[in-house]
Design a binder for these strands. Sequence first.
DNA 1: GTGAAAGCGCTAACAT
DNA 2: ATGTTAGCGCTTTCAC
Lengths: 339, 339
Amino acid sequence: MFEPSTLKDIAKALGLSTSTVSRALRDTHEISPETKKIVLEYAEKINYRPNPIALSLKERRSKSIGVIVSEVANHYFSQAINGIESIAYSRGYHVIITQTHESYEREKANIQHLASRSVDGLLVSLSAETSDTSYLQSLHKRGLPMVFFDRVADDIETHKIIANNEKGAFEATEYLIKKGCKRIAHLTSSAHLSISIERLEGYKQALEKYGLPFNQDYVKYCPHGGMFYEETETAVKELMALEEKPDAIFIAGDRLSIGCLVVLKNLKINIPEDINVTGFSNSDVLDLFNPPLTSVRQPAFEMGQIATEKLIKLIESKYPVYEFEKEVLETSLQVRDDL
Amino acid sequence: MFEPSTLKDIAKALGLSTSTVSRALRDTHEISPETKKIVLEYAEKINYRPNPIALSLKERRSKSIGVIVSEVANHYFSQAINGIESIAYSRGYHVIITQTHESYEREKANIQHLASRSVDGLLVSLSAETSDTSYLQSLHKRGLPMVFFDRVADDIETHKIIANNEKGAFEATEYLIKKGCKRIAHLTSSAHLSISIERLEGYKQALEKYGLPFNQDYVKYCPHGGMFYEETETAVKELMALEEKPDAIFIAGDRLSIGCLVVLKNLKINIPEDINVTGFSNSDVLDLFNPPLTSVRQPAFEMGQIATEKLIKLIESKYPVYEFEKEVLETSLQVRDDL
DNA sequence: GTGAAAGCGCTAACAT
DNA sequence: ATGTTAGCGCTTTCAC
């Protein structure tokens, strides 16, 4: 089967000891130029690669970082991942991506595995289902470096990279208000997610600023972030069944925004005649949509980059770190109007 | 820092030997129930997890498989990845995803690293830039199990999972012909990719069947699969600058299809008035597009599943395998018409 | 300048 | 039923 060559192979072939070969390959001064040359040439010839697993075991670090997101098929996350990779690779780290599909169980299983020695640190964006982060808490307490991005755990003290969700939500809601909408509903992910809380807050602030009443019936939660079509459909149907039907919806997530548009289309509810819509989304194809969707865009790539930089700094720090930052990046409202 | 507990820790704390602890944890018959109980309880208490790196080193396998795709932000690939994961996790394998971004260099670097001991096998979809697969060839010869999906290497003998690209392309082209289009252009990825060749072939067959001439000027290649906006834009502009402007375009890839629609929109070329378009895409939001895009959809999830099953079979095979299959799955034409 | 030996965490002969 | 030892591939003292 697949048996890559080892130091021992080289040593045996050349009649040297493994330690000499090891030193020669890593260019120590205490090796004679001739020996060095012979070893290097032979290693090159047989295409020798050091076994990273043996190295990891020895050095007790794997030079890899684990990423936990809900799914890669999400524009925000795929862009963030690209940002993560760009930094990680330039610093010699490998990136292991895992998906939760918004399930607490999968999140826990993935993280437990990653943590149990195969990664040096974690970049985490919580699943919609997750409300109990005690298992993360305990990993963190035991010293596993982690940085949160987008969906953060409030009760864990570490670096956090988020978008200015409040302001983004405020602007999106304000946009609807300025269009003349009076009964603006809010479709969001699960209630305990940090992003849900912050975006709801921005939504409320906009209502308040413009003297519109806040109506709890207008807020619909999707505990799985719209992972299932039915979830979104039910929420939309409930909204449209209200006595005082909303005349607009502000949607708090990428998957949810797209999902809601599909639902509306299937229910033959027309935009903007029947209802106005705006939502968070990092999709790069929104320009192709009809009707167009005015969206709140997060600097996903940059968020991924910053999170990774901070994580690597934590990993490589010689001393325990106790000072943590919460970095807040600005969103941008991308207005797409008909006509 | 982060120092997870080891067998030795348990052994020391309990006054046992590491081997006894090891056996107790893995429930061998030759351990007394009392000892077993004590060990299990203590392990549970300190939340012991075996070190997978040490296990990998010992067993010379990592129970993980490497995946190489061009990018996760591609509907086809993200769906395929979900299929891959679904099988892999159920069989106890972990999945390491790497992206080439259509670059040969990144592909090679990623694969070299994965191969040098950290994965038991590879699921590969080649980058658009890749024409030389000798480095893969040599890994394969040395016994590293690999399975290709979607974009396959013709000169490497192993399992391959592909869609019926020829038929898919034929149907898409035929659809345009039946709509009355006479001068159908073909926008595709790099010329050496297996999918490009097969889809071009299907396109040609449709033209031939309906007595339309094949015109090489109507075929435009994008060596980076439309990774850059300019690449797609240039191709479209060249097509539209032809003496005999095409009245339709059949597009051979996911990213390219979306990219082309954006370009057409920006160039203010209207669909279907100025031109008709159809293309390969697994996007789940095509229904929201306006104008709508008739698309060829690949069974991505299923392809990922099958590829993974075959790979795991290769990995776990006791004897070298010499019989390889090429599995061809049917595409489906999703007609989306105006009106 | 080079080799022998120990150790990273684990399992599996091989004792006892 | 439990302990001792060797070895997976590598680096790193410590000898010579």
